[in-house]
Design a protein around this nucleic acid. Structure first.
Lengths: 330, 330
DNA sequence: CTGAAAGCGCTTACAG
DNA sequence: CTGAAAGCGCTTACAG
């Protein structure tokens, strides 16, 4: 059984296809009796408008493009969770596009544009300033609105939703310093993620204010690599507190340090970021900055719907509140 | 700058739009000189065919629908990773659809059908047999091929890619039994996931073969809930081995049992499933069944491309090999 | 309030 | 090898 088209509905209801289209898109512009009849036929036939045809005719696909670099990261899937839920609520479809480091960015974007999405949620946090600027320009030229989703970029004109990572790192660093910690490390990533750049800035500020030299240890997100890396370095270098840019890195560090015979938190405090299951599953349970990643996705999607509908928006640069969860590792 | 259309290209190249379309879709059917010229203009104009218009005219959207229940699960995001990579390779777009428990399944599927995807990857593992049958029928009626992706369903006609979870559970249970364990539990989920039903079957078989009563403990995937649940039950009931259907549940159990003063593995062995970061981050490190979840996604996507292109396929029911990783918890 | 007609940007037989 | 024309299934001014 092939799917019913708008012609089938129009024929069976004894009206023109324009009328069927109207009951779907501008129901109040059609007489109630006709509307009822058409609705009835639609139901009988199980008719659903072909989204592609509708998209072509109306020049709106009701589809949002989500651009990401790595779905398997805990933060990405949380963001997606929020995006999917809100998109469903507002009847938007979502298409996934992955940016792979090697590929030509311009080419990738041209491809996304050709897919006719109505808006873009940019989750790819690994682009540098120049690349970000290119992305911005391409979508602007194509007239496709974009909101940065848990991505920081120094351009006030681009709508974005994130957390004030700089301040969070600053606050947690100060907190450790006030407890008398001296050898406070920031465990960050070798790869450049804009959110981590912010954390580094906040940490650095707090350290400098205290007259201490910032010690940023950059390592891999890969467990076996960072384990070896930590083991080698912290075997000889003193450390009495560490803030990791991700929970999993914090737990990995904690395991290493404990293997080296140090007690957590007595000899060394450990703090993570995001408040994932890793934090709860670790022993001792990890103190961390709880960042509302799911909400960031949800709010970003909501913001994008407003922009696409050209609604008035008071603030297009949203920072969601974070929360420091005190557990046993500090 | 509005995007160039096929008319712009045709005009500038001095050919008809049919010819432009041909150089894009059947390049060998057009004379080399004309082809070169058209290609040149396409490049100059940065022309990309409008995917929506192409979809309508050709009745192929080159888009695959991924149907899932919860993106934030580690297995879902791994599957997605494999799917996205292979989809990109074969130039398919992917659209995400979430099935929420409450909503009308038929309605959800009608909606997916109206979105004109060329194929479906079903990742939603929480449907019961009746619901699965309904899903199958709806997509069949709409003539949209579907492949079950890490979902088990007792119908040989539906293409699927998974792991032999039943055998894996059987094997690991036997392994524990051979080591003299008596009170061997399976830690499963209250919610019904088809993959877990398989694990329960394999475990049960091994226990019965050994003349032992199967002990399946069903709990929540939520950490705080299962922790309390474990604590209450295992405080009084003997256990010397536990196999959890997920790594995170295994680690949660391990934490509880250790909190109760038992040593792992001396007093109680613990085994997980999937080999996620949770397993590596746990202390002791978790022994588990390594299931190639990323590969399941990749292979399923590849299989679907073959089906969509009507290629010959020798096997549409693929079971990928698993691997038991021995670490310190057994 | 309703219908006839043009058009969205492509693909695809059909002629030549 | 190439072009004119119909058609994919809708939406949207324009009349009436």
């Amino acid at each position: 059984m092939a799917n019913a088209t708008i012609y089938d509905v129009a024929g069976k209801a004894g009206v023109s296809l324009a009328t069927v289209s109207r009951v779907l898109n501008n129901p109040d512009k059609v007489n109630e009796a006709t509307r009822e009849k058409v609705l009835q036929v639609i139901k009988e036939l199980g008719y659903r408008p072909n989204a592609i045809a509708r998209g072509l005719a109306s020049r709106k696909s009701t589809t949002v493009g989500v651009v990401l670099s790595d779905v398997t990261r805990a933060s990405t899937s949380q963001l997606l969770g929020g995006i999917i839920d809100i998109a469903k609520k507002y009847n938007y479809s979502i298409k996934i596009f992955s940016m792979t480091g090697e590929a030509d960015i311009k080419d990738t974007i041209k491809n996304i544009v050709s897919e006719q999405v109505d808006g873009i949620l940019l989750l790819d946090d690994e682009l540098d300033e120049m690349q970000m600027e290119m992305v911005r320009k391409e979508f602007e030229d194509a007239n496709i609105p974009m909101v940065l989703t848990n991505v920081l970029f120094n351009n006030e004109n681009i709508p974005s939703v994130a957390v004030d990572y700089k301040h969070a790192a600053y606050e947690i660093t100060k907190h450790l310093l006030e407890r008398g910690k001296k050898d406070v490390y920031l465990l960050s990533t070798v790869r450049r993620y804009s959110v981590n750049v912010e954390k580094e800035a906040g940490y650095t500020l707090a350290m400098k204010e205290a007259g201490l030299e910032p010690k940023i240890f950059k390592t891999s997100g890969d467990l076996s690599i960072n384990t070896a890396h930590f083991l080698e370095y912290f075997n000889t270098n003193p450390v009495d507190a560490a803030i990791a840019v991700r929970d999993s890195i914090a737990v990995s560090f904690m395991n290493v340090i404990q293997g080296l015979g140090k007690r957590v938190p007595e000899d060394c405090s450990v703090v993570g970021f995001q408040n994932t299951k890793y934090a709860m599953l670790a022993r001792p349970m990890l103190t961390c900055v709880d960042t509302p990643v799911y909400d960031i996705g949800a709010v970003a999607m909501r913001l994008l719907t407003k922009i696409m509908k050209q609604e008035d928006i008071d603030n297009t640069r949203i920072l969601l509140p974070y929360n420091i969860i005190r557990r046993k590792s500090v």
